[in-house]
Each structure stands twice: as structure tokens, then as C-alpha cells.
């Protein structure tokens, strides 16, 4: 299942970087999220126009998704991060091992984050969020404030989060 494939799920380009991260390894430390996000972002932005700006943006977005996955506590296995480029976007795919319950949860979270008017949704939810931020709040913010395309592609025992980040 892909949420709104026509809008949010560009054909996956050939990856320029692909990393396998063990779920257990990721759980070792919360700071792995930012270290991974920084590394992958710097790699993907290295030969682009204004690599520092692109690194900052990519790392910000990727970190948010990695933190979401960290909190989702997927089953044992590997998380696979692949980054590719299209002429208009940088496409980040993050494949997460899932069981039925987690797949269902990701489906629900992604559906909320990619609703019809995410900006209005985020503004409406904002004060309630301060009392108790929902798990998908960071994802909703990516779509609502930062204009990031977000989609979910499901396969057997794996769900893939797809981020489409405009180059500028």
C-alpha cells in the first residue's frame, strides 16, 4: 500500500548511498539517530550547490524520521536507508522491519501526517500537542511546515517510509 502514490511516491532513483542499520544497534543510543542523519545528509549533499544548507535540511528531516522509527520500536532485523536523486528531489527511503501491529500503526500515523490539509491540521493540533505530543507529530510537521513529501510503501514484513525533499 502506498499512500497517495500519484502525489508522494516518485519512482525510486538509483541510490547514491545505502546503509543497513541493525535495529538493536540503533536502540543502543538515542544519539545514533542524529549521527546517522548527519552522516547521510552530509554524504548526499557533498557535491551539491551549497552543501551546508542542504546538509542542514536533509539532516533535520531524516533525523525526524529516524527518531520516529526509534520510538516505533520495530522488530529485530535491519533498517535500510537508501538515498537517491531525481532532477527535482532527493528521495530518501527508509525500510523498517514490521509485524502486523507495527505495520498497522505506521499506516495510521502516515495517514494522519499526509491528510488533505496538513498545515491546518498542524496549526489546529498545536496547543494540544504541547500537552501530549502524538507519535506522528514530527512527521506531520515535516509535511505541514517544511513541505516534505511523505509516503508509505508496504511489502511483506517491511514498511518503507519515502521522503521527497526538494533540492532547494
Amino acid at each position: 500500500m502506498t499512500t497517495d502514490p500519484a502525489l508522494h511516491s516518485p519512482a525510486a532513483p538509483s541510490p547514491i548511498v545505502k546503509l543497513n542499520i541493525s535495529v538493536r544497534g540503533l536502540y543502543d543510543s538515542w544519539t545514533h539517530c542524529q549521527n546517522l542523519a548527519d552522516y547521510i545528509a552530509r554524504f548526499a549533499a557533498s557535491d551539491r550547490f551549497d552543501p551546508e544548507q542542504l546538509t542542514t535540511r536533509l539532516s533535520t528531516y531524516l533525523n525526524e524520521v529516524l527518531e520516529f522509527v526509534f520510538r516505533a520500536r520495530p522488530a529485530e532485523g535491519d533498517i535500510v536507508v537508501a538515498v537517491g536523486r531525481t532532477p527535482e528531489h532527493i528521495v530518501v527511503e527508509l525500510a523498517v522491519p514490521t509485524d502486523a501491529a507495527l505495520a498497522e500503526r505506521l499506516r495510521g500515523d502516515l495517514a494522519r501526517a499526509t491528510g488533505p490539509d496538513p498545515r491546518a491540521q498542524y496549526a489546529a493540533d498545536f496547543h494540544a500537542m504541547l500537552a501530549s505530543p502524538p507519535a506522528d507529530a514530527g512527521l506531520l510537521e515535516l509535511v505541514a511546515l517544511h513541505g516534505i513529501g511523505l509516503a508509505l510503501r508496504e511489502g511483506p514484513a517491511v514498511s518503507t517510509l519515502v521522503l521527497s525533499v526538494p533540492h532547494e
Binding site: 542524529q34 542542514t56 533535520t60 525526524e64 500537542m129 504541547l130 505530543p133 507529530a137 514530527g138
Partner: peptide
């Protein structure tokens, strides 16, 4: 401040509130 995650952003908003 180069990086701020959404959790940190919400915590800053809580402080302001």
C-alpha cells in the same frame, strides 16, 4: 542553533506557553 528536533521545538513552545 543549527539543529532542533520536533521534540525540542515542542519543549520550547511549552516553555513559552
Amino acid at each position: 542553533l543549527r539543529y532542533l528536533n520536533h521534540t525540542g521545538f515542542v519543549e520550547l513552545a511549552r516553555f513559552i506557553a
